[in-house]
């Protein structure tokens, strides 16, 4: 079942990326990318290596981290509930079948597309900075997320009877996917939120190069963030902290990857702007 789902998600996201490549990235950049992909990837290789290492660490220690987490971690589920009470239940009160279907697809397919596509889009830019920074921001998100998951144990609202389990009741097969990626005590903070918000901020920064993507990314990120609560998976608190984490990671990415005005000189043949709006 898991394999079939992974296949389904891969196909859908690949198709979306293909459409996005043609409509958003555009022919000119794609053609250039065909020539430039190798040197660009080579240049970004250290950053990509870090991201891959973080992801590998994440999956390698997940089960182990879970145990440490129960041992040393703070179980904050009841504190979160004490803070926000029935907020998520209120979000769910506007429930309709159409909304549930929309948010379920956005949560699974939209999210993967939102994370993958900008890598492609930024790889096609002459300016390497957004690509590198995005990769670094992703790395920080996963790394800090893992640390927070170890320190804090929390169940989502669906698991403590505050909210309904809308994703898994309408699309129970999705649980095979989400549980392969994470455990149900890792809800604080919401990485769906922090990564989506991270992409949205980058989309804002690159809005001159990719105006359509800017609008699309903002809409998609907002939907994903809402979906985490609408589906009963995350608390409002997880989302807020997720937004904070996104801000931190974007900040860190700017600190560790310098903007490269010199780059535009190197690739002076290219007439496109850096794509970065500082």
């Amino acid at each position: 079942m898991l394999r079939a789902l992974v296949f389904e998600v891969s196909v859908v996201v690949a198709a979306l990326c293909a459409v996005g490549a043609v409509t958003i990235v555009g022919r000119t950049r794609l053609t250039a990318l065909r020539v430039e992909i190798q040197p660009r990837l080579r240049e970004s290789a250290p950053y990509l290596a870090v991201l891959i290492a973080v992801l590998a660490l994440n999956s390698a220690v997940r089960d182990y981290a879970q145990e440490i987490s129960w041992f040393i971690g703070l179980n904050i589920t009841d504190s979160i509930e004490a803070i926000e009470g029935g907020f998520v239940a209120a979000v769910q009160s506007v429930q309709t079948e159409l909304l549930t279907a929309y948010f379920s697809y956005v949560y699974v397919f939209g999210y993967v597309f939102l994370l993958i596509f900008p890598l492609l889009a930024y790889a096609a830019l002459d300016d390497r900075t957004p690509f590198k920074r995005l990769v670094v921001a992703y790395s920080f998100n996963y790394l800090l997320g893992l640390l927070l998951y170890i320190v804090f144990v929390a169940y989502g609202p669906r698991n403590v009877g505050v909210a309904e389990n809308l994703l898994y009741i309408t699309n129970p097969e999705y649980q095979f996917l989400t549980s392969a990626v994470n455990t149900n005590t890792n809800v604080f903070p919401s990485l769906h939120t922090s990564l989506s918000a991270t992409v949205a901020v980058f989309a804002y920064r690159t809005r001159e190069a990719y105006p359509i993507w800017f609008g699309l990314a903002i809409g998609l990120a907002a939907s994903i963030i809402l979906s985490t609560m609408y589906l009963g998976i995350h608390w409002g608190t997880d989302v807020l902290v997720g937004l904070g984490l996104a801000a931190l990671c974007v900040g860190l990415s700017r600190r560790y990857v310098d903007g490269e005005p010199s780059q535009s000189r190197v690739s002076s043949e290219s007439k496109s702007s850096t794509g970065i709006t500082e």
């Binding site: 079942m1 009741i169 129970p172 649980q175 095979f176 549980s179």
Partner: peptide
């Protein structure tokens, strides 16, 4: 092992 009762039911319904 599955992560919830709904998933267990889904596996049976799907023939897995």
């Amino acid at each position: 092992t599955v992560s919830s009762d709904a998933s267990a039911a889904e596996l049976v319904a799907a023939g897995d």
